[in-house]
Simulated scan of single mutants.
Amino acid sequence: MKVEDFNFNLPEELIAQAPLKERAESRLMVLDKKDGAITHASFKDITRYLKPGDLLVLNDTKVLPARLHGVKEETGANIEVLLLKQEETDVWETLVKPAKRIKEGSIISFGDGKLKAVCTGEKEQGGRMLRFQYEGIFYEVLEELGEMPLPPYIKEQLEEKERYQTVYAKERGSAAAPTAGLHFTDALLSELKERGIRIEFITLHVGLGTFRPVSVDSIEDHDMHAEFYTISKQTEEAIQETKQQGGRVIAVGTTSVRTLETAARDHGTVKESSGWTDIFIYPGFQFGAIDGMITNFHLPKSTLIMLISALAGQKQVLAAYEEAVKEQYRFFSFGDAMLIMDTKGGK
């Protein structure tokens, strides 16, 4: 299949630059994956579409305030650092701008010296290995000095850090939020539980590869980035019980989908497991774990729109996106949501 087959026209003004005041006030498009029927609703009304015995699986990863602004000690030049992956205690793989100013042995100072970093190695495309020096607890220093690494299409400054964090975020490690979960509030989650809808969690630490454009013409030639995931025994058992009792497994976000489908592919069913996944889901994929999903509206020609097209069909998804543009839905991380499932009650 061609990447161009997943293109659509998106007016720039529909790209949400800031979250709504109330999380659950986002709009919700419900797309029937069987016949393409579309219903317009509010996210707070999602309880209408889920039934007792269904299971929601959410990603409880927590976004690090991973963007740091500092100066090169030798020259005073301004340096921006983005934490990507912790390699060992106090040693991180990072992206540095401007990278040409930072060579092995260079020292970067943040917060008037509260945090320092020594470059211990150079990698391609602005990558640098940094060893951090500080007093106290690293993550507390990071919370004080760091900024949320918002996606490149968000130009406005985020006023409250927690709005780029789900209310159930727990496991530190992501460079980006699992944004489908941003619509949930504690009250809405409690209401779902009271109605007999089960809620369990996986962890997948979202990498910046999420925003990497597909640069090939044919989607089969695209190399997917790898991300670390964990599935607990409790989640494994909840999925098995849900399926045995005729309930539906609804994944919240593409990260949850990729995690569950990786386990189903590797083990024949979802099992307690952890590891790295580079699964690439596009039309023709046979789903082995999920029955539906909640997601936001995605970039044209992205791996994410390919994933939802695998679940609901390329033509139906593009028709739904055309409707979303027509109806002025808000797109991307701080935008509105879509629920994809068989709305007639089956799987």
Rank of each mutant, 00 (worst) to 15 (best):
T259D: 00
T259C: 06
L260C: 03
L260G: 03
L260S: 08
L260D: 01
L260K: 11
E261T: 11
E261S: 03
E261I: 01
E261M: 02
T262F: 01
T262V: 00
A263Y: 05
A263V: 03
A263D: 03
A263M: 09
A264Y: 01
A264Q: 01
A264R: 02
A264E: 04
R265A: 12
R265H: 11
D266I: 04
D266V: 06
D266Y: 05
D266E: 15
D266N: 15
H267K: 14
H267G: 00
G268V: 10
G268P: 04
G268W: 01
T269A: 14
T269R: 14
T269Q: 14
T269N: 12
T269F: 09
V270H: 05
V270C: 04
V270E: 02
V270M: 05
K271F: 00
E272R: 15
E272D: 12
S273Q: 13
S273D: 15
S273H: 06
S273I: 09
S273A: 15
S273V: 07
S273F: 06
S273K: 08
S273G: 08
S274H: 13
G275F: 10
G275V: 09
G275N: 10
W276R: 14
W276M: 15
W276Y: 14
W276F: 15
T277M: 10
T277N: 06
T277D: 04
T277R: 08
D278V: 00
I279E: 03
I279M: 09
I279W: 02
I279N: 01
I279T: 06
I279K: 10
I279F: 10
I279S: 07
F280W: 07
F280V: 09
F280R: 08
I281M: 13
I281W: 06
I281T: 07
Y282D: 08
Y282M: 09
Y282P: 07
Y282L: 12
Y282C: 11
Y282Q: 12
Y282R: 13
P283K: 07
P283M: 06
G284Q: 08
G284V: 13
F285L: 13
F285D: 02
Q286G: 12
Q286V: 15
F287V: 15
F287Q: 11
F287K: 12
G288A: 08
G288K: 13
G288P: 09
G288Q: 13
